[in-house]
């Protein structure tokens, strides 16, 4: 019985299906995008950074590794034929058609985000059936369902790069706290005209939010000061840096 509780019951999954617990996110800002993912992978969450498509793959996700290599190839081929790197939209379209053509075999929600000369920072969400939707921000994975409200309440147009990084970090931390299939550390990358910058947030340095009254009481007792400042009005959100 203990096994049944503590592990994923593989019998309940479809044949060949894997449990894709994770939280991923991408947000566009003036001049670029921020991508982020947590590190807990039952099978997969990956950041493939931008137009250069360097596969930065953790765990044993052979399918996605293959995909990334394929798209790295596509991007290079495009560059050779067009004498310029493919726009973000083009890469997203390639993923989209692949997801659509193979919708009966794939179960992957993909976010393609990057920066190009034509349209600046862009985020494309490619959900399960193989659609393609450009969005200012996009979240995905099992953890995302917990934080849609937070994103709606927090996202503002015209955020700076630093504000956007904070937004991604906070959102993922909240998702990881609520979602049992998400957790660990946060990896982010910022893609701008200048290139790719990677940011790592270790698991013990995640931003803290209200995670249970007892916890806060304990911390107050230790530090002697409040860990969080509660919002004065309901409209102000509850971000704590």
């Amino acid at each position: 019985m203990a096994d049944m509780i503590n592990t994923v019951n593989m019998e309940r999954l479809k044949k060949g299906e894997v449990n894709l617990g994770t939280s991923i996110m991408a947000v566009a800002f003036e001049g670029g995008v921020v991508l982020g993912a947590d590190s807990r992978t039952t099978t997969g969450s990956y950041i493939v950074s931008g137009l250069q498509t360097y596969p930065n793959v953790r765990d044993q996700a052979h399918l996605f590794l293959n995909l990334c290599n394929t798209f790295h190839y596509h991007a290079q081929f495009y560059a050779a034929q067009h004498d310029s790197r493919p726009p973000v939209h083009t890469i997203a379209s390639l993923f989209q058609s692949l997801c659509y053509e193979n919708k009966d075999r794939l179960s992957a929600g993909i976010i393609v985000a990057g920066w190009d000369e034509e349209q600046g920072g862009q985020v494309y969400n490619i959900p399960l059936g193989g659609g393609i939707f450009r969005q200012p921000w996009s979240i995905g994975g099992s953890g995302s369902t917990y934080v849609y409200g937070y994103c709606d309440a927090t996202y503002k147009e015209g955020m700076s790069e630093d504000e956007t990084v904070n937004f991604v970090r906070n959102t993922l931390a909240l998702a990881m706290a609520r979602d049992g299939s998400s957790g660990g550390c946060i990896r982010m990358c910022v893609i701008t005209k200048g290139g790719v910058r990677r940011i790592f947030v270790p698991g013990n340095e995640l931003p803290k939010f209200w995670e249970g009254a007892e916890l806060i009481e304990t911390k107050r007792a230790i530090s002697g000061k409040p860990e969080i400042s509660l919002p004065a009005t309901a409209g102000e959100g509850m971000v704590v840096q």
Binding site: P87, T90, A92, S93, L94, S97
Partner: peptide
């Protein structure tokens, strides 16, 4: 065919 392939 270009549109089909690249969506652009």
């Amino acid at each position: 065919s270009y549109r089909d392939q690249y969506g652009a």
